[in-house]
Design a protein around this nucleic acid. Sequence first.
DNA 1: GCCGGTGATACCCGCCGGGTATCACAGGAC
DNA 2: GTCCTGTGATACCCGGCGGGTATCACCGGC
Lengths: 287, 287
Amino acid sequence: METLETRELRYFLAVAEELHFGRAAQRLGMAQPPLSRAVQQLERRLGVRLLERDRRGVALTDAGEMLLHEGRAALDAVTAAARRTSRAGATDGTGARRNRLVLAVKAAASHELLHKLLDAYAAEPGAVEVEVLPSGTCEQGEMLRDGRADVALMHTPFNSLAGFDSEELLTEGQIAVLPAGHPLAARASLSLAEVTDVTDLPLARWSHDGTYPPGPGPEIHDQTQLAQLIALGRTVAVFPDSARAWLWSDHAAVPLTDAPPVVTHIVWPAHSRSLPLATLIRTATRL
Amino acid sequence: METLETRELRYFLAVAEELHFGRAAQRLGMAQPPLSRAVQQLERRLGVRLLERDRRGVALTDAGEMLLHEGRAALDAVTAAARRTSRAGATDGTGARRNRLVLAVKAAASHELLHKLLDAYAAEPGAVEVEVLPSGTCEQGEMLRDGRADVALMHTPFNSLAGFDSEELLTEGQIAVLPAGHPLAARASLSLAEVTDVTDLPLARWSHDGTYPPGPGPEIHDQTQLAQLIALGRTVAVFPDSARAWLWSDHAAVPLTDAPPVVTHIVWPAHSRSLPLATLIRTATRL
DNA sequence: GCCGGTGATACCCGCCGGGTATCACAGGAC
DNA sequence: GTCCTGTGATACCCGGCGGGTATCACCGGC
């Protein structure tokens, strides 16, 4: 039966995302005609219409929608295989095997926990070098899926653990981080509603791949920016307890009574079978 | 950077499984020299030695081991994408869309539950046709992974739910199924140890892709065979409670006190996003 | 020493993936 | 109406590479 080469998958995904053969071809660094032909071949091979060609533009059929989702996952799995394999065979300058573990963590989260974990793991027999890979807002899942990382620290309810194996490490409450002088900063505790309703301190909007959600708050893409804006009395933010570690003297932290607790998990691809990874996980759960 | 075509993956997996270029080439329906060359190209492209070539035979390096595992998963994902896509676009004779759900179930398990589930789902608005795919001993996981199935009923602790999303449906105890005339059949309950220690009734050995684990028990590959052997007083078996439904008059069922409970789950690939599937899952959890 | 069997090499060919040029067609502007 | 524009599809050509056959290099064993 069919084979579905990854080249065809890449081609189809480009077209399905751009919904335009010309732009897709440009993105792929090739001309439009062979791209059209390749997609037609793919459709014939699968015996399925993937795209509804209209005179101006392209639309996905149901089958195309399916291939868009499944194909992304498949392509991620393939590039993950390639990446992990070349990492597994990498050697350092001296030719010695250099078997690293790549751990993806949200940029400025859980310094405390991370420190303890790395120290404890380094003391384990058979520990390998751990490369800490700071990842953007919520992309640890992607990094595990496409092989850029072998294991990650994730935080529910912000990250989804779907499709991975995980172990719970730490549960913490959340705090509101306010300008030190703000009236609410004197309170012993706050509710989520009280924080989101403060009209003089609109919640900041994080950059999601270049675009910002609509709203009144300032646009940021960096935790330091946020800290500064809070210190300047321009906004307020909600963070897990452990964020107290990086607060400035201009900041005030007030516990939130009704915010969902943040649970830190150690997460890895379900099919992983590597001794160093197993050791790291065991170390983590014993903290 | 690299691309890793699925053709190369298939070739490498064949060699890694056979540990022999000649046999692998035969299995792939091609000659040995181009296969050797393809694997060399793959190694160069990844910058990694995958195989340790010895004069007689081949051994996997660590990187090769990694690519064997990751590559299998990746190839499964690719074929899953192909299968699900062509299913999503399949039409019946009249040209009407024929959107089925494929449900994998262990051959003779949970008739009761399955029946209720299918009936309840058929009554839901927007229900599509459900194809029930009887799967071998424990291969529902593979079927979900490579796209032969969209959703499965699995039974812990026999199946592993790793890498999937799941919901619990039903918990049941286990029973020993004995020949009706056997002394132990009169007992009100038994322990696992008592059952496994009965030397005149050695536990049967199930076929695992053509081979059998070592042991004294009879070799079987079919539930009817097992039922017959029990009725003939040649063996004993352990099953979930629901197996009572298919017992013969020559069989006796005795509850086991210390056997782990069997939990039936409904299981699906974590990234699934289909309305019919969501409906089926919701129906199942409401049973 | 010869033979069998391993994987690697050499060489050739045909196919197919990619390129350029062009077409067919639908909307708009006027 | 008649352009013009921009879409995807078609026609055709070429080079590379995937696959084949023949052969080599090597080693273990009878």
